[in-house]
């Protein structure tokens, strides 16, 4: 029960309260670039969600099994060359960035092939933005959040398991989708408005994004509120 509750809190926090785009301001590039139509925004959100879940799965697996100090796989291999106590101190966390970028790039490539095969119109409408998910910092951010919750925990039981990580990855993507779809809806209406010339284009989009972020600030503290309300569990 406690575990489910934890997953629930992580999910709602990633999707709404600490929304990646509107709270942490990561992933702004596709947020501005592909938020012209709601249909495209939904597609982009789904693609980012898929890539994020996949990348978080890969990065959690690699971090837990290889990178973190005392990870079973690296300790086992290092055990051939040194004493088991020493092998358990081997720290490969310096590799996190390159490994995560590697896995994100592969995940994007995979999703690109999949979308091209099964959703050609979507593939066409994405254009350059699909490969650009590779450099979408929201995904790297999700991976690094998972890493910070796996590595460096004094008590190994506190480290996130795969379920919590996947919840963060998937609902982080859902949060991104929510943000970009709201943005696209506003921008569709915005096309009909008489925007003063100096504000047209990217300028008004960024202003709208800022106001949207302020609105999402209203969710602040909801997670701690829920935690204290259901604290008895």
């Amino acid at each position: 029960m406690e575990y489910l509750f934890d997953i629930f809190l992580i999910s709602i926090s990633a999707a709404l309260i600490n929304n990646f785009v509107l709270y942490y301001f990561v992933g702004i590039c596709p947020f501005i670039g592909v938020s012209r139509q709601v249909s495209m925004a939904v597609g982009m959100g789904s693609a980012v969600t898929a890539v994020m879940t996949f990348a978080v799965f890969l990065s959690w697996t690699i971090t837990t099994l290889i990178l973190t100090p005392g990870a079973p796989l690296s300790a086992w291999v290092a055990g051939w060359f040194m004493s088991p106590e020493k092998a358990r101190t081997i720290d490969l966390t310096i590799m996190t960035y390159i490994v995560y970028i590697f896995s994100i790039a592969s995940a994007v490539q995979f999703v690109e092939m999949y979308v091209r095969r099964f959703y050609p119109p979507l593939y066409k409408s994405f254009g350059v933005f699909l490969p650009l998910i590779t450099t979408n910092c929201a995904i790297l951010f999700a991976c690094l959040t998972v890493m910070s919750n796996v590595v460096g925990k004094a008590n190994p039981a506190e480290a996130w398991d795969l379920g919590r990580s996947l919840a963060l990855g998937f609902f982080g993507g859902v949060g991104f989708t929510i943000a970009i779809v709201i943005m696209a809806g506003i921008r569709e209406e915005l096309d009909l408005c008489d925007v003063p010339k100096p504000f047209q284009g990217a300028a008004i989009t960024l202003i709208v994004g800022g106001i949207l972020a302020m609105a999402f600030m209203g969710f602040n503290g909801v997670d701690t509120g829920i935690r204290s309300a259901l604290g008895g569990l």
Binding site: L92, M95, V99, S103, F110
Partner: peptide, 22 residues
């Protein structure tokens, strides 16, 4: 040397596995 070897090995194995999948 072991750390470097493990790092290189990790990347090598990742490269092989991901290349196969892609």
């Amino acid at each position: 040397a072991v750390t470097i070897g493990l790092s290189a090995g990790t990347l090598l194995i990742m490269a092989i596995v991901l290349t196969a999948v892609l």
